[in-house]
């Protein structure tokens, strides 16, 4: 049985994560620069997903190895992808 406080906290984390997902992704169809959208996506996809994973971790602590690995790989890969996309998209802009 899960402690109700822990349950509430985990739903809070998942709620914050979903809020970040919707808010950060909502800027995608707008006419902003790639870099601005990249900032927003780093909120949505990295921080939002990490919050959702934390919520899941509180809910199902017996699956912690998988979820911890997911949090680590999410943080590293999404951040590095953000850097690579920023690098590649701006070199193209200066060369044109």
């Amino acid at each position: 049985m899960i402690n109700p406080l822990v349950n509430l906290f985990s739903y809070g984390c998942i709620g914050i994560g979903l809020l970040f997902w919707f808010w950060g992704t909502a800027f995608l169809p707008s006419r902003r620069s790639v870099l601005f959208k990249l900032h927003m996506l780093s909120i949505a996809d990295t921080l939002g997903s990490m919050a959702i994973l934390l919520g899941l971790l509180l809910k199902r602590p017996q699956e912690w190895p998988l979820l911890v690995l997911a949090i680590i790989s999410l943080a590293i890969w999404n951040t590095v992808l953000g850097y690579v996309l920023a690098y590649c998209s701006t070199t193209e802009a200066t060369h044109d």
């Binding site: 900032h39 850097y83 920023a86 690098y87």
Partner: peptide, 14 residues
């Protein structure tokens, strides 16, 4: 580079 890009307000370009 990782830490700077991880915080959402800043991204390392180069």
């Amino acid at each position: 580079v990782f830490v700077i890009t991880f915080t959402p307000k800043t991204i390392v370009l180069r």
